[in-house]
Design a protein around this nucleic acid. Structure first.
Lengths: 126, 126
DNA sequence: ATACTTGTGATAACATATATATAACAGAGG
DNA sequence: CCTCTGTTATATATATGTTATCACAAGTAT
């Protein structure tokens, strides 16, 4: 389990946890059907409270990345709502790109960054 | 002043304010040297507290989008640190694209959205 | 059957963040 | 003098994040 929490970050711990797991799924470190550590295990391992992990898992479930099973624990299970995903991405990008635009970042430079990051997803595209 | 606040949003009011002003700058609705409404004016207009507007302005100042002058009020003044801007963008995009990747969004689709948004910058009139 | 582990829930406590409400101050300009 | 600016200072209320216990129902392991 390669999870690193920055306790000095202004980002909430459960958000950092959520983000790293999402990145883990995108980079195929976790795959459909894989089980994540139990809330207590992961909490002990990181050194945080059980409920903080539980909150991260709850968010991931609500966003359609995992399923929570009393028997197996947290299981990677992608609920793909592509249309909604596209809408969310466009909404988020609108702010992010505006910020970059004010810093004189061009569309070409953004395209380049996109490709760099997608290269990290070394497996086949869906 | 075309500012719309969603009071039911989970995003803080001062963040919504910050985002809309950044988008306003990116789309040339506000230009270098333009003055924003005073904290009291804008607060009255939107129907929120003065300090909430002041916080938005303080964040915008700290991030290098405006300057605050006791005489003139808030003035658009871009402090362009492109290298840092690129780093921030890549950090933010890493999470955002991972989320999209899990929803089966391809690199090509992201490129398309980028171009769509950048088109809004070109055709928007001040 | 016993012991253990799973997610889940309730509750309490504390720190921080958000937002509001007043009030006052110093500098600039009418 | 009066009014407008950002700024600072309190105080208050609410929400959020995090930790800490305690407990429960359901599944697994021995």
């Amino acid at each position: 389990m390669i999870i690193e929490i920055d306790f000095n970050s202004d980002e909430a711990i459960y958000i950092q946890l959520r983000n790293q797991i999402i990145i883990g799924i995108a980079t195929s470190r976790y795959q459909e059907g894989d089980t994540l550590p139990s809330v207590r295990q992961l909490a002990d391992h990181i050194g945080i409270n059980m409920h903080t992990v539980n909150k991260a898992y709850s968010v991931l479930k609500q966003e359609g990345f995992i399923k929570l099973d009393r028997r197996k624990g947290a299981v990677i299970a992608l609920d793909v709502d592509k249309l909604r995903g596209l809408e969310e991405m466009k909404r988020d990008l609108r702010v992010l790109l505006a910020k970059g635009r004010c810093k004189n970042i061009t569309a070409d430079e953004v395209h380049q960054i996109i490709d760099e990051i997608y290269c990290e997803y070394k497996y086949e595209e869906p």
